[in-house]
Design a protein around this nucleic acid. Structure first.
Lengths: 221, 221
DNA sequence: CTTATTATGTAGTGATTGCTACAGAAGGAG
DNA sequence: CTCCTTCTGTAGCAATCACTACATAATAAG
């Protein structure tokens, strides 16, 4: 048998017209950097085309419009972060959260790209624009938050958190810490300072009773 | 003796020309609301003049330019928040921080004005603009943060925190929680959710040994 | 009154915004 | 080669941006 076509996503046949002269993924990566450092509104199409090395018509042909490009950028940013930090695999919920926060502290202060978190920038700078953009960003962030909450809930099931833990409140709290770290990084906070904040935040983790409750009473008696 | 001029701030003599037809403080209050909801860049001069009920020349005559107006708005916002929440007067550092966070949770979700924190909006939306604006906002926020840290340090001196507490890390942490609460509020978080976050955050407060250290050893022995 | 000074409303300024019309270039199909 | 399709660069669209020139109105001083 020869060259059986894989069942994969794309037949990937060459289209008919003139081929694109730039790498779409690479251009998107450049756009991510611009949005990451400036947010949505402050990043002009001129900024974007300059960074991407293309002209406006190429941008609009490949990505639709500025809003769609932004949404795609945020989406891929989330994917990238998720791929590079599979915190759910940690053995306990506490270790998972601590790892997530620790890796984000490193990401937010990595000098090879803009500081802080693109998702946070997106949330703030899209809160004044079209409802569509607002909803897309909110949905993207809600999904990331849901993943975090699921990991915490799994921790409750597996017994590394007290059974009556308020997982929603815990999720809200650590999500807020993440947002706070992002802003701190943008204000010039160092990686060391962010890592210290992670340790402080982990002190809020619910105490697992050292012994089961029923034996505690017996010990006192 | 008659009409001895007080040594106070302003002689307040009527100026020579045509009097201003609008209330400057009230106009500034309206500008604060616009910036609060849109940030710096997304708030256009047209938005501002419409909300303030004046025409552009009046705005520029009274406030200089958009940047100066923004700085004055953020400054007064900080003053207002500081006045309405004198948390430093609480008896312990822990109560002071808890009160600050609690009142901010209420402020950020108050429906009589835009949600979240103007200072946080200012920080994010000015990070892409002129260095002057950036520095002014950063200085304003640094001052607020310094006040928080001083209250915590006072707590260490007065013995309601362990003597070796890392006050800088604590300040960073609670400042980040505040920023995170602001973003959460803008994402639609309820007051209840924010108050729950405050309680969670307070669990990270350093444990004060119930008994002095020297007696603890004796008790164990 | 006249004069000086300041504020106001109208109506713009040039620059920048997101976006696109258009002509030509670069490929596949026949 | 000729068609057809798609992409690229130039050049420019209407709308909006922050900001202001200018004539007039309103006050105090003389």
């Amino acid at each position: 048998m020869k060259t059986l076509r894989p069942a994969g996503p794309a037949p990937a046949r060459r289209p008919r017209g003139r081929p694109r002269a730039f790498d779409r993924d690479q251009a998107l990566a450049r756009a991510i950097e611009v949005f990451w450092s400036k947010g949505f509104e402050a990043a002009s199409v001129a900024d974007l085309t300059a960074a991407m090395g293309i002209n406006p018509p190429s941008l609009y042909a490949a990505f639709g419009d500025k809003e769609s490009l932004f949404i795609e950028a945020v989406r891929r940013y989330h994917e990238n972060v998720q791929m590079s930090c599979p915190y759910a695999g940690e053995p306990t919920a506490r270790l998972a959260v601590e790892r997530l926060l620790t890796e984000l502290a490193a990401l937010f202060t990595d000098r090879s790209h803009p500081s802080g978190c693109l998702s946070v920038m997106a949330m703030v700078t899209s809160s004044t624009t079209s409802p569509r953009l607002q909803k897309c960003i909110a949905a993207e962030r809600a999904e990331a938050r849901a993943r975090l909450r699921e990991r915490i809930q799994r921790g409750v099931k597996e017994g590394d958190l007290p059974r009556d833990s308020d997982t929603a409140a815990l999720t809200d709290f650590y999500a807020a810490v993440i947002s706070g770290m992002s802003l701190q990084a943008r204000e010039g906070g160092t990686r060391k300072a962010l890592l210290a904040m992670v340790q402080t935040a982990m002190r809020a983790w619910p105490e697992r009773a050292k012994q089961p409750v029923r034996r505690k009473a017996a010990a006192v008696a």
